[in-house]
């Protein structure tokens, strides 16, 4: 087990190294850079810009900048944002909550609605409902999220005036109800795709369970259809459900990026786009590493779980 773990761990570290190098190079490939924001300011002369470039250490060769950054990271120093000077981890932390809130609520919606559609589709196989659910899922996967958000804003904010067009809460009103009001549209928009995926998944899972012997036995015992379903289907699907929710974790960075942009949600996705726009290298690199580490960790955990369940993999 230990050998296996070490092997996986070293592979993960190599992966992180690759990610950091590619990220750093690609980021520096973009012309412009962090000083472009002063490009239109008449009082920032070329002298001022050259001075700032040197103060930020951007005039050093790329490899030196990378090694400096990487060495600090290894020591636990993620650097400071070029924009507000705050430590990168603080910056990420400040935006993480908003994203988790949005993703959490959309996951709840997706699982609730998706489970219902999936089970109903499976128990009423080939019915009109099942057919519509299948088509609906496909369409849902095809709608551009940003466009769906726009249409939502048009209908519910501009035309009907029922829901806010953006933001997480109204200034001065920190009540849960206010948060909820702002959460409705973005979380539904974000949930759309997940409802589609989850309902398809639940349908398959339910069909599997229904065809199995123990359900037939249970049915023979005279248990009601409903109880059988609740007990076995949901029970059996619970583990994959947690896995699916867990699999979403690495996408915390970009999973909600589009939705956050459309609804001006102050989360990680917006932070990522803003930081990219200002070429805030430390924050962009921090976000990339943060999400890469999440990916690696989730894969590692999955590998370990599988290895524990299936000893053959451990041996190979």
């Amino acid at each position: 087990m230990r050998g296996f773990l070490l092997n996986r761990l070293s592979q993960s570290l190599v992966l992180l190294l690759i990610v950091s190098v590619i990220g750093f190079v690609v980021l520096n490939l973009i012309p412009g850079g962090p000083l472009a924001q002063f490009g239109l300011d008449p009082s920032m002369t070329q002298d001022d810009l050259d001075r700032l470039r040197e103060q930020l250490g951007l005039n050093r060769p790329l490899w030196m900048q990378y090694l400096d950054w990487a060495w600090r990271l290894v020591q636990g120093d993620w650097g400071h944002s070029f924009r507000d000077g705050a430590p990168v981890l603080d910056v990420i932390g400040r935006h993480l909550v908003a994203t988790l809130l949005l993703m959490g609520s959309s996951t709840v919606i997706a699982i609730a609605i998706g489970t219902w559609i999936g089970i109903r589709g499976a128990t009423h196989r080939y019915s009109v409902f099942d057919y519509l659910a299948t088509v609906g899922a496909m369409v849902a996967l095809s709608i551009p999220t940003f466009w769906f958000g726009l249409v939502g804003i048009y209908v519910f904010s501009l035309r009907l005036g029922w829901l806010p067009a953006g933001n997480m809460y109204t200034i001065g009103d920190g009540s849960a109800l206010n948060y909820l009001h702002h959460l409705i549209m973005p979380s539904i928009v974000l949930a759309l795709v997940h409802v589609a995926i989850w309902s398809r998944y639940m349908r398959t899972a339910t069909l599997d369970v229904i065809s199995q012997e123990f359900v037939k036995t249970a049915r023979a015992k005279g248990l009601s259809e409903r109880r059988i379903l609740m007990k076995h289907v949901v029970g059996n699907a619970l583990l994959p459900m947690i896995t699916l929710a867990g699999m979403q974790l690495p996408s915390v960075l970009t999973g909600a990026l589009v939705t956050e942009t459309v609804f001006t949600w102050p989360g990680m996705g917006r932070l990522f786009l803003d930081s990219l726009g200002y070429s805030d290298y430390p924050v962009v690199m921090g976000l990339l590493m943060f999400s890469a580490i999440l990916v690696v960790l989730c894969n590692l955990v999955a590998d370990i779980v599988v290895a524990i369940i299936d000893p053959r993999i451990r041996l190979s």
Binding site: L15, I22, G23, V26, L29, G32, T254, L257, F272, L276
Partner: peptide
């Protein structure tokens, strides 16, 4: 492991 949007935006900017 990269958000594809990062690569696309970065490359199309470059």
């Amino acid at each position: 492991s990269f958000p594809s949007i990062f690569l696309v935006l970065a490359l199309s900017a470059a």
